[in-house]
Design a protein around this nucleic acid. Structure first.
Lengths: 215, 215
DNA sequence: ACCTGAACACCGTTCAAGT
DNA sequence: ACCTGAACACCGTTCAAGT
């Protein structure tokens, strides 16, 4: 039975859990860029400086947020057949991340997900091994799928952000200046680019990777 | 013959070209985060506010920088065989970007590269069509490869950044807390993760995509 | 036309002081 | 032990004024 340590000094007004919960709220509604120490302090009814008693710095706060989020990710049923299993796990991972693109920004640094979300790499690596690869190759498979997934989620998030602020002019400019002799294919596609790139091709890519990587 | 417009008023001290050149220097040596208006002003021997007479805002400056950089990208000889051609173009694109990961950050928003770098999508789409796909499918092929490339370049850049500031502790923490019963494969890999993920698997991934996507 | 200084509304973080 | 206020060293951007 754990003995409660005798606490001394001023009783805490805010807890780490309060902070993380508030941070979650801010990020969810206004994005990761809006998560400033001052804004967060206002949200928990305290000062920015008080936060530094509970988290090391902003980076540490983001990692905390990441862990909390990762622990809540769904672990869907996956098909037994290894190749289908890899595809399904990747699609689930993309699905899990695409609502929270800030996650990709935070952990893009590592090939690995946060502690709470290791279920995905575990499933993918295991399924790859069961499909007949060595464990080393299975790690490659996972990392390649991860890079593809990170690029897709990150790209889509940025595209959405730009759309929201009335962008789209850059793309138009690109196609406007296009030299049809130098870029025949792009000219051929031309105005249809918007329509063609609106389609969701994630699963298609993962299936191609699985077909190309697994024996 | 173009008539020189009669210029009036104060003669310019700094030009757009000066600004872009200085910006290039800053980004090259200290990364895109170090490119602040004030820092850039110091670099060109002016004030931050003077810059706003030559560029719309920081975002516009980055796009300018992007175009300048894109125009200088190499256009290597590519093999004739369509599948090999796609792989070679993708590898060249990755190569071109990996020295300049800030480019990925800037243009992650669009599937498309800057005006100056359309050569790469043109080659990839053209080769895919010559391999037997429809133009619509060829666009998919390009976008899937682009997402994979953006994810790989972005991830590698972030990993390098973290390594430079003595990081790596997060990965260790992840493997430290690992439950071998829940994550048998990750435990099996364990300490070798570092070694396994140091390998360059980009080309392997592109080849898999090409094998899986092209007829 | 081009540049400047001052100002506005922000940042993350540190530090000494209060309770 | 926990919180606060003031301060430091920054941001991007606007605006009125100068040359």
């Amino acid at each position: 039975m754990a003995v409660m340590p005798t606490r001394t000094g001023r009783p805490p007004k805010i807890s780490k859990a309060d902070i993380v919960a508030a941070a979650h709220r801010v990020v969810e509604t206004d994005g990761v860029a809006a998560l400033t120490m001052r804004r967060l302090a206002k949200e928990v009814g305290s000062t920015a400086m008080a936060l530094y008693h509970h988290v090391r710095d902003r980076e540490g706060l983001l990692l905390l947020l990441l862990d909390e989020h990762a622990a809540a990710l769904p672990r869907p049923e996956l098909p037994e057949e290894p190749r289908e299993r890899v595809v399904a796990a990747a699609v689930a991972l993309r699905e899990a991340l695409s609502g929270y693109p800030w996650v990709v920004d935070v952990l893009r640094a590592d090939d690995l997900l946060s502690v709470g979300a290791l279920w995905y790499p575990e499933q993918i690596i295991d399924a790859a091994v069961r499909a007949g690869t060595s464990i080393e190759e299975a790690v490659d498979v996972y990392r390649i799928i991860w890079h593809y997934t990170a690029g897709e989620v990150g790209g889509r998030a940025a595209a959405r952000g730009r759309r929201e602020e009335g962008g789209g002019t850059y793309r138009e400019q690109v196609f406007g200046e296009l030299d049809a002799a130098e870029f025949p294919r792009l000219s051929e596609v031309g105005a249809r680019w918007e329509e063609l790139t609106a389609r969701d091709t994630y699963a298609k890519g993962v299936r191609a990777l699985v077909r190309g990587l697994l024996p």
